[in-house]
Design a protein around this nucleic acid. Structure first.
Lengths: 239, 239
DNA sequence: TCAAAAGTGTTGCCGGTACACCCATGG
DNA sequence: CCATGGGTGTACCGGCAACACTTTTGA
């Protein structure tokens, strides 16, 4: 708004209050499958119904901070990938009150989070394509978040946000196949990923998935951030 | 939020109220220059200061509707390009009150709008790169909107939203040069634009800019929308 | 007749895509 | 010794970028 330093009752509308909340679409990747963290209500109202995890935005925090707080309460994680998705503000979206939600989406490493915390909050990981219907407009939020994730993953190598800190190229590829729901060519994917020069090779192999074992890498986050600020083009596919 | 059908005082936080507003970053294109519509305060407080045009979101409208209403009040225009940009919700962004703003950006044809309405609202078109500092966090909003416009224009031929209904190829190119702030190659630009097959040639010339005159075209909006839904790739440049 | 903008093709290069086989190893 | 997944190279093709001259016409 364009004003400030004026008494509230002067320019700030005395209209009916609008509540401000945030909801988080939390993606994880586990055993080759893309998952979503949702929350099952164990009490009335809407007992047994699934919903995204959210909260009101408190007076002393930004919407981003609110989303971050929610995420931290449930997963114990901090400083993870968290971005604003969009705002949902239809007047009839929440029959309980006039309430808008500033949705955020997050990418987390499933093996990092505190499993006890997750369980304690009645949160459950669902496979993205087996997710039942959620309350309110949360299905729409999930759909929008998936589209956003796909666009983002096409142009940025954000896959690493969902993988363990040490990961293999085949893991990375499996993740991308899960996101885009199609098979990718091993050689081309590898070539492209390597050409970004953002993976630091480790002298270690992960033998959990094969007898031969695959080399582990870690992501050069600092270099990535530097290039990103220079507007570097990371796109992993054209189509 | 995850709840509904419960008394307000039950789950809806009784915390200090957060006000919900929207601000519009309105782009126009006139005489080869990219412009922004801002609003000059003629009364205290902040007399003479420039600000974006905004409003509180009313209880009976969505944020998008609020932005649309604001735009309509000032320009008389309806059904124009209008998209959510992002939400600004830092606790200290508005010293007058705890207020968040769901910013939207709009692209309008300057020759279409009602000049009287604009003048009556103390609104002024400023060249984008000569824009003075605005109040609150509005400078940041403008910067974000410009980046968004550039990204959007790189992947979608949205230029037509800013041009008159009948326009010439050189006009289109000048607009893109204004957006990206660099010269583009005439032949390549034309070739690429034509290859999209979204321009309908008219048997008319516009001689206002040259003696030879340039052919006029109109945009095939329906075909564009159809292709857009199919996920067609419109990108006008790679870099 | 000239100034000023409109319009037009070709070529090289880079990057995307398609495609099939050998390697290493644990069981 | 074999089944399983890891890892590698090449050839074609389309699209991007670079580049200069002719056309039209009002003044």
């Amino acid at each position: 708004m364009e004003n400030s330093n004026v008494p509230l009752n002067d320019i700030y509308a005395p209209e009916k209050r609008i509540y401000v909340a945030t909801d988080c679409i939390i993606f994880g990747f586990d055993k080759g499958i893309l998952k979503l963290l949702v929350f099952e209500r164990r009490v009335e109202p809407l007992k047994g119904k699934l919903s995204l995890i959210g909260s009101f935005v408190k007076p002393n925090e930004s919407a981003y901070n609110a989303a971050n707080r929610v995420l931290n309460e449930i997963t114990g994680l901090d400083k993870i990938f968290l971005e604003e998705l969009k705002t949902y503000s239809n007047t009839d979206r929440d029959p309980g009150a006039r309430c808008i939600s500033i949705a955020h989406y997050a990418l987390i490493r499933i093996d990092d989070y505190d499993k006890e915390l997750v369980a304690k909050h009645d949160a459950i990981w669902y496979e993205v394509d087996k997710l039942p219907s959620l309350v309110l407009d949360h299905d729409l939020m999930v759909e929008d978040a998936l589209n956003r994730l796909r666009r983002k993953a096409r142009f940025y190598p954000i896959g690493f946000e969902l993988l363990p800190k040490k990961f293999t190229i085949p893991q990375f590829q499996t993740l991308y196949e899960a996101i885009f729901q199609k098979k990718l060519d091993t050689r081309n994917f590898r070539k492209k990923l390597m050409s970004l020069k953002l993976l630091i090779p480790l002298n270690e192999k992960d033998k959990s998935a094969s007898k031969k074992g695959a080399f582990l890498y870690k992501f050069d986050y600092k270099k990535y951030k530097r290039l990103e600020q220079q507007g570097y083009n990371f796109s992993l596919f054209k189509n």
